[in-house]
Amino acid sequence: MRGAPSTLLPVKARSVWRLQAFFESLLVALLPITYGVLLYFFDLPVWILFTFIAIYFLYIFITVIFLPPLRWKRWKYEVLESEIDLQFGVLIVRRQLIPMTRVQHVDTEQGPLLRRYKMADVTIITAATSHRIPTLSLEVAEELRDRIAALAAVAEDE
């Protein structure tokens, strides 16, 4: 049986994921804020507001503090001559093998947060789906993109 992929994502990925989760949690904060505004205008039970606030802080703890290190620990990848091996997941660990003959093209992608940290995602597109290796350093992402593209071209010629 084949072993798990060996390449981990950079440690800085945990910080980026924490920031992304924090910004996403601001949308969840709209629930207690909206209820607080409604409480000002209407005679509603106050305990519901405190419940919403407690749920919000629990959500922040799970998504910002607990999940990013666990997600980082489980995310591994390896690029071989004939395939790309991805392993990821928190509760359910997924393992994907992408044959080089199926790779159509490879992209690097940066949002504002990744650009700030000089990181990028590598997206591998096949005929049926797209796969992503997240939050690699910019140099590694560009090198990986070029390597996968070259290996896919060789696999296509065979």
Rank of each mutant, 00 (worst) to 15 (best):
I84L: 04
F42E: 13
R74Y: 15
V79A: 05
E83N: 12
L9E: 07
A155Q: 09
D43V: 14
V37W: 12
A4C: 02
F23I: 10
R18K: 12
L86Q: 01
G36K: 01
I148Q: 08
I62C: 01
K118N: 15
F61D: 08
L8I: 04
T51V: 12
T63R: 13
R102L: 02
D85A: 06
V106A: 03
P68A: 00
F52H: 05
I55Q: 00
W72K: 05
R102S: 03
D85M: 14
G111A: 01
I133C: 08
V122I: 03
S137G: 10
V93Y: 09
V154S: 11
T135V: 09
F61H: 08
F66T: 04
R116E: 10
G3K: 14
R116W: 15
V122K: 00
L113I: 15
S130F: 09
L151N: 04
E24R: 15
I62N: 01
F50P: 07
L113M: 11
P32A: 02
T108I: 14
A54H: 01
T34F: 12
T126V: 06
R132Q: 15
P134Q: 02
W75P: 04
P99G: 03
A29K: 03
R145F: 03
R14E: 14
Y40F: 14
T108L: 09
I48G: 00
S137Y: 05
L144K: 02
E81T: 13
T135K: 07
K73S: 10
V140D: 12
W17T: 02
R74C: 08
A128Y: 07
A150K: 15
S82F: 11
I133R: 04
L19C: 10
M1L: 15
